[in-house]
Amino acid sequence: MARKRGRGLSAVNYPTGMNLGGDPSQALVHATTTGTFVVTLSSVDLGQGLKTVMTQICAETIGVPPDMVLIDTADTDTGPHCMGTFASRGTHRIGNAIVMAANEARAVLMEVAADELEVNATDLEADGKGAIHVKGAPTKSISVIETALAAHFKHGKTISGRGMFMAERSFPEPETGKMRPATCYAHACTIAEVEVDTETGEVEVLSLKSAYEVGRALNPKMVEQQIIGGAWMGISHALYETTEPYYPDRAHGPVDFNEYLMPGPGDLPEFGGVILERPASDGPYGAKGVGEMTANSPIPAIANAIFDAVGVRVDSLPITPEKVLRGILANEGALEPAE
């Protein structure tokens, strides 16, 4: 009996969003009297950082600092429509809607500033710090706050914009089944190293190293966060988590966190992640979806590494010690393999 090492590779093309119903999301942007840009959505931030990235996108598009943007979201009774936070679609779909809404709001902001400064709106630019000035003449300037006040109390204008994302519907060709299920794809490659105990069937993940092509990392620290969290989730899916270990039999199904297994802080491998950027032509500032693929690419890499280590091909998740051990014994002619 021994501990055997193996290395496995996976490569993934990951669609951003989906095709169903055009996958629409909408956004509304308006300025308050004092120049705070409120982005109204019904998209939910699950902790992945949607509010932060949406703030960045609106601030960048209008040309104001992020602290002048306020995200008002997650009330589906009152917010504009969003299909939801899933399918790695948030940054791309909702981001696109915000770019469109923010551009419309920006145009009104510039018209009002142009009236106030008695210049042409096309000669103006926002400095990203809260002021608007004439290109090449920064002293000819008005603050965003003054512009918003003027819009409300002098010009009777609303500095606002509407935005939406909707993908062109793609129906399968009847002859071939060919279709376009998504508008852009992110890419992933993971290499896993494992050690398998041939006596117990237990698998230890030693390292997970990945390269992720994400279009553009709008917030690199949060992309890194997704990569590390996703790597852990991938190990968890690959080796631990199940609600029905003997599906469809409910026997031994976990009923609490004592029995529902997940890797703990002592079960971490060495993590490594590289971010590659090839901007998507239809993404907000080039971004694609990064979230889910970070949890998916580790799974086949770990399965392949187990095969490399002990010659056992397990094709159902999670890859439990029982399945690995049955596979080892079957290879030796001692036992029928587990499904």
Binding site: G47, Q48, Q225, I228, G229, G230, A231, W232, M233, F257, M262, G264, P265, G266, L268, F271
Partner: peptide, 15 residues
């Protein structure tokens, strides 16, 4: 922290 479960971060950033 082994008595505390985290579902998002992968523990690495917490450690």
């Amino acid at each position: 922290i082994s008595g505390n479960i985290c579902r998002c971060t992968g523990y690495e950033p917490i450690i």
